[in-house]
Design a binder for these strands. Structure first.
Lengths: 337, 337
DNA sequence: TCCAAATATGGGAACATTCCCGCAAATTGG
DNA sequence: CCAATTTGCGGGAATGTTCCCATATTTGGA
C-alpha cells in the first residue's frame, strides 16, 4: 500500500551529503554552511519531505504526545475540557491522543494500554464511575510517566490533580435553595466511588446543617449516572408521602432530565419543585425553565491540567510536587429555582 | 526522565533465548515450542513488558492509527460523529488521533502536518468553513494515505465521502413550513464555500419553487457561522418592512440563537415567526420552544466514514472506489414551527 | 608562515522491533 | 535405519532518525 517515503538519505544522496549533515540542516543545528542548509531545505520542500516522528521518537525516547482519557463525550464538559487541554498542549509542541472510556472500567484499562504502546509522554485522566482499582494507572507512576487527574480524580495516588471546589459549590447551591424558602431538598447524588459525588453530598449536608434544616436520609439517592434511571428516582421522590420541594442534582444532565420528568407529571418548575444542577452545561441556559446551576471553569480546568502535566514532563525525575489545583465555582441563578 | 524500558532483549537474555524467538512467542507465531512461549509470556507479564509500537510501526510501516480532523467541538455534532468513528476504529484495532482545527485554515494545515508526522494510516476529515485550498489534503492522496471526508466534504477531490442528503432535508423542512401556511420564509445560510450550505440553499429554493412561493433574494443571508453575528442578521430580517414569518437556519446552533433573538424582541415562536434548524443537536429538544429540525444520523455518519477508511486501508493500492455514502435525514417536527 | 582553533562534514552506533535466511535437532516415512 | 521433512531457534539486516566522535577544511592571530 505505502510507497517509498522520502527520507533524509534520499536528500543526502541527491545533494552528495551525508545523512548527518542533512539531519543537522533540518533540525536547525549550527555548524552547517548556510548554502548547504539552504539547499537541503529547498530540496526537502520540493520533495515534500516529512520527518518520521516514529524514528525520532524511538531514538529520543520522547513522542511529544500526551494522552487524554475521559469517561464520556455526551455532556459538553469533557469536550470543552479537552479543547482547553489541547490549546496549551499544542502551544507547547505536543499533540494529543484522546481516548474515551465510555464509563466502563475495562475500556479504561484498554485505553491505558493504547497510551503505553504509543509511548505517550504523559497522560491526563478523568476516571470512569466504575473505576475502583487503580493498578492500570499506577503503572504510569512506576514507569515514570507523568499523570495528572482532573475532575474525577483518584484519591489514593499522590499525583497532581485539578478539581473544582465541589463541596463549596454544592454548599452554595443548597444554601440558595434554602434561602428561597425550600424546606425539603432532595439530592440526586452520583456514585460514591467518585470523590466528586461524595464532596457534593457533603456540601449538601453542610448547607442543611448550617441553616438548621433537618437531614432526611430518604431524600438522598445515589445513582450510577445512567440517565435513563433518573425517571425512576424522580418519580420515587415525587411519590413520597412527604415529597421534596426542591431537587439538587449531582450534574446538569441529571437536573435537565429531572425537569423533564417533573414537567411530564404536570408539576411546575420552580413553583412546585425547584431544581438545581452542577456544571453549567451549554444547554442549561437554553432549556425551559433555564437551569440554576453551579458553573465550573471547564476550559480552564483542561488548561490547568495540561499545564501541570507538561511542567511535570519537563522537570527532572523526582522533582515535582503533587499539586492539587482547586478552581472556583460560581452559582448561576436562573429560572428553575 | 524516562528509565530503561523493558524490551524483548531483556526477556531474551533472562531466558537465554534470542530476540527472534521472543518476538515470535509474543506475536503468536507458530514454530515456537509451547513451553518456550509460555515462559516468555509469563516473564513478559511479570516484568510488565509493553511492546513498543514506535519500533513496530517503524518497521512494518503501519501505525494502526487513524487521524480525525474536525472543525469544532462546540455543537454536539462532531463529538458524536467521533464516538461513532472511534467505535468501529477500535473494533478494527485502530487507535485515533483527534485534531480540532478551530474553524481556521491554518490550524487545519498544521493538523495535517501532525498527522503526516505521526504516520497515520489514514485520515477522516471535515473541513473548516475557511478551507478553499486543498493542497494540504491532496498530499495524502499523493502519498497513498487513504482519506475520507464526512459532513464538510471537498468537492474537487475524488475520494470516498459520507454525507447526508442536505438538499432533501432542506427541501422537506421548507416544504413543512409552507404547508403550515408560511409565506415569507427566510434562510440563514452558511458560507457558500461549504458544499452543505449550497445544497441546503438549493433545497430551500426548490421547495419554494415546488409550492409556487416567490423567491426573494433579500430573505437569504449567508453568514460565516460565527454565532455572535446571528443577532445582527435576525434583527435585520425582523426590521424589514415586510419581515419574514419563518426562518430556516442552516444548523441548530444558528436556529437556537435565532429563537433567543426573536424572544428577546418580544415576539413569539412560532406564532409570530416559525424557526426550523438542521441537525437535531442534543439541545434542540430541550429548549423552549422545542426546535423543529432535520435530524441527521450523526453517529452512523462517523461509523460509516471510519468503515470506509478502514476498508480503503486494507485494500491494495489502487483498488478502491470513491464511494459517496449518502445517509437519510428525518424531519423532526416540534413546537417551533 | 605556521599552528591552533573554529567550521563543516562524514561514519557509524543506537533505538526496539520484525522478518528473512540458515542451521541444527527432532520427527516422520518407506 | 537412513533420508526427508518438520520444528525450533539464532543471526543479522532493515526501518529512519539522532548524536557522538572523527576527520577535513578554513580561518585567524602571532
Amino acid at each position: 500500500m505505502k510507497r517509498h517515503q522520502v527520507t533524509i538519505i534520499d536528500i543526502a544522496k541527491e545533494l552528495n551529503l551525508s545523512k548527518s549533515t542533512v539531519s543537522r540542516a533540518l533540525t536547525g543545528h549550527k555548524s552547517v554552511k548556510p548554502d548547504t542548509r539552504q539547499a537541503v531545505l529547498e530540496l526537502a520542500e520540493k520533495l515534500d519531505y516529512q520527518r518520521n516522528m516514529l524514528a525520532i521518537s524511538l531514538i529520543t525516547k520522547k513522542t511529544n504526545t500526551i494522552g487524554i482519557i475521559v469517561p464520556e463525550f455526551h455532556s459538553s464538559y469533557f469536550p470543552k475540557a479537552i479543547i482547553g487541554a489541547q490549546e496549551v498542549a499544542s502551544k507547547a509542541g505536543y499533540s494529543t491522543v484522546i481516548c474515551q472510556s465510555d464509563e466502563t472500567y475495562e475500556t479504561e484499562v484498554a485505553n491505558t494500554r493504547v497510551m503505553l504502546a504509543n509511548q505517550v509522554d504523559g497522560i491526563l485522566v478523568s476516571i470512569t464511575k466504575e473505576t475502583k482499582n487503580f493498578d492500570h494507572l499506577k503503572i504510569f507512576q512506576r514507569k515514570g510517566i507523568p499523570i495528572v487527574f482532573f475532575n474525577r480524580v483518584c484519591d489514593e495516588m499522590d499525583v497532581p490533580k485539578v478539581i473544582v471546589d465541589d463541596y463549596d459549590g454544592s454548599f452554595r447551591a443548597v444554601s440558595h435553595l434554602i434561602e428561597r424558602g425550600r424546606k425539603r431538598i432532595a439530592h440526586l447524588a452520583g456514585p460514591y466511588s467518585l470523590k466528586i459525588s461524595e464532596k457534593r453530598l457533603n456540601g449538601y449536608k453542610a448547607a442543611l446543617r448550617k441553616h438548621n434544616v433537618a437531614f432526611d436520609e430518604d431524600l438522598v439517592i445515589s445513582y450510577d449516572l445512567n440517565i435513563d434511571k433518573v425517571k425512576i428516582y424522580v418519580n420515587h421522590l415525587l411519590n413520597m408521602e412527604n415529597p421534596p420541594d426542591a431537587i439538587f442534582a449531582v450534574n446538569d444532565p441529571t437536573a435537565i432530565e429531572t425537569i423533564q420528568v417533573i414537567k411530564k407529571r404536570g408539576l411546575r418548575v420552580p413553583e412546585d419543585i425547584a431544581v438545581v444542577g452542577f456544571s453549567n452545561d451549554f444547554v442549561s441556559g437554553l432549556i425551559d425553565p433555564a437551569l440554576t446551576t453551579v458553573a465550573q471553569p471547564v476550559k480552564e480546568i483542561g488548561q490547568a491540567a495540561a499545564q501541570l502535566l507538561i511542567d511535570q514532563i519537563n522537570r527532572e525525575v523526582g522533582d515535582w510536587k503533587a499539586i492539587i489545583r482547586v478552581l472556583k465555582t460560581e452559582l448561576i441563578i436562573r429560572k428553575s429555582s
